[in-house]
């Protein structure tokens, strides 16, 4: 008869002192951080009825009185989105191929990873600030900003998807004596396309939402109109703009789900 053997799941961090000091240190830090957050409850209480008034001033949304400005802004945002998504994706295909470790030789890989890192460092709104300084106010600056943002996003995800592909399928096509481009077209492209179509739709959605922000720095789109209505306390017009943005984002979301299922 053997003794009872107790089993416990081995801890994630093996060294007990490290485990405990991380746990205690982490909890202390969290407590101190919460403690330093200076919440003035009176101001919070005062803010609640103000928020109520603010929200009620949004209703009823007014689509009519500024309709030409609103629709102009929306259409500008939409075509900025379309153009910058297309440009961004077209440019990120070669960059993504270069930034995939299993495709590119080491120096090329490092160079394109660098390009991606730089384009991902700055948020679109900061790139838009530069672009406005360089090219002046208007949607062109916005398109530049959104295209650069799209390259960072799409190129990185494309490169990672290529790195995750099944190498055996790729090997099989290579063993037939195919050229490099044929190999890309027959083994890499079919493996990454469905996910990349889904991500293109997602990026379209991001670019549309971003285009609403870029107007604030003068880079075109619906943002400028939205900001003007806020500045003039025309909250019912702001509400109609927000509702249109929500509607368009929902439409893109719904159709991207549908398209993704269809291309899988």
């Amino acid at each position: 008869m053997s003794a009872i053997r107790i089993w416990k799941r081995p801890p994630f961090i093996k060294r007990a002192w490290l485990r405990w000091s991380l746990t205690i240190g982490g909890s202390l830090f969290l407590l101190v951080a919460i403690g330093t957050m200076d919440v003035n409850w009176q101001r919070v209480a005062a803010g609640v009825p103000r928020a109520e008034r603010f929200i009620s001033s949004f209703f009823p949304p007014d689509f009519a009185s500024k309709s030409s400005d609103i629709w102009e802004g929306i259409f500008e945002s939409l075509w900025m989105t379309v153009v910058s998504t297309v440009i961004g994706i077209l440019l990120s295909i070669p960059i993504g191929l270069g930034a995939a470790r299993n495709l590119a030789p080491r120096p090329i890989y490092l160079f394109f990873r660098g390009v991606l890192a730089v384009s991902r460092t700055f948020p679109e709104i900061i790139i838009a600030l530069f672009a406005v300084k360089l090219f002046g106010f208007g949607p062109f600056a916005g398109i530049i900003a959104l295209s650069i943002g799209s390259i960072g996003f799409y190129g990185k995800l494309l490169a990672e998807d290529i790195e995750d592909m099944d190498p055996v399928q790729a090997e099989a096509v290579k063993s037939t004596g195919s050229s490099w481009l044929q190999w890309l077209n027959y083994s890499v492209q079919p493996q990454v396309t469905p996910r990349m179509i889904g991500l293109a739709m997602y990026r379209f959605d991001i670019n549309f939402r971003e285009s609403a922000v870029l107007g604030i720095v003068g880079a075109g789109g619906i943002g400028a109109t939205l900001l003007t209505t806020f500045d003039r306390y025309e909250f019912s017009s702001s509400a109609s703009i927000l509702l249109i943005i929500i509607g368009i984002v929902m439409a893109v979301e719904y159709s991207s789900g549908y398209i993704r299922k269809w291309v899988q």
Partner: peptide
């Protein structure tokens, strides 16, 4: 070459997979 896990390109049709054997030509 014939492979262990078949190594067909899964999202291509049977015909495209067979014809990929002609890519070198």
């Amino acid at each position: 070459m014939i492979f262990q896990e078949y190594a067909l390109v899964e999202r291509l049709s049977v015909m495209e997979n067979v014809l990929s054997g002609r890519l070198g030509y």
